[in-house]
């Protein structure tokens, strides 16, 4: 999951970046790597790929500020759904 997210973020929002520069804890929202439109696109990707529905308030800076936090958010959603 981490690598899927990393790959998506790199190809969509950081074209040309070395994968090693996007770490699991690199700030995404607070740093400006992801703006609001980019976040919408990422949310769509996640909903489709992992079969979850993200509520508007859940696409928050806290949940989406790093690959790590996105992974725990998705896992939390999956656990509560099952």
């Amino acid at each position: 999951m981490k690598e899927d997210l990393r790959q998506f973020i790199l190809s969509e929002f950081l074209p040309g970046e070395k994968p090693s520069n996007l770490r699991d804890d690199t700030p995404l929202r607070t740093s400006g790597v992801l703006d609001s439109v980019a976040t919408l696109r990422l949310v769509s990707f996640i909903e489709e790929r992992y079969g979850i529905e993200v509520q508007p308030h859940e696409a928050s800076v806290e949940n989406f500020d790093s690959i790590q936090s996105i992974v725990s958010f998705i896992n939390g959603k999956k656990a509560s759904a099952s």
Binding site: F13, P15, K18, N21, P27, S31, G32, D35
Partner: peptide
Amino acid sequence: SIVEMKAFCNQHLPAFMNPDV
């Protein structure tokens, strides 16, 4: 790095001016 440039622009430019590439 590109991550760094993106974050730098976020500090020094309005968000709508941050380059895509």
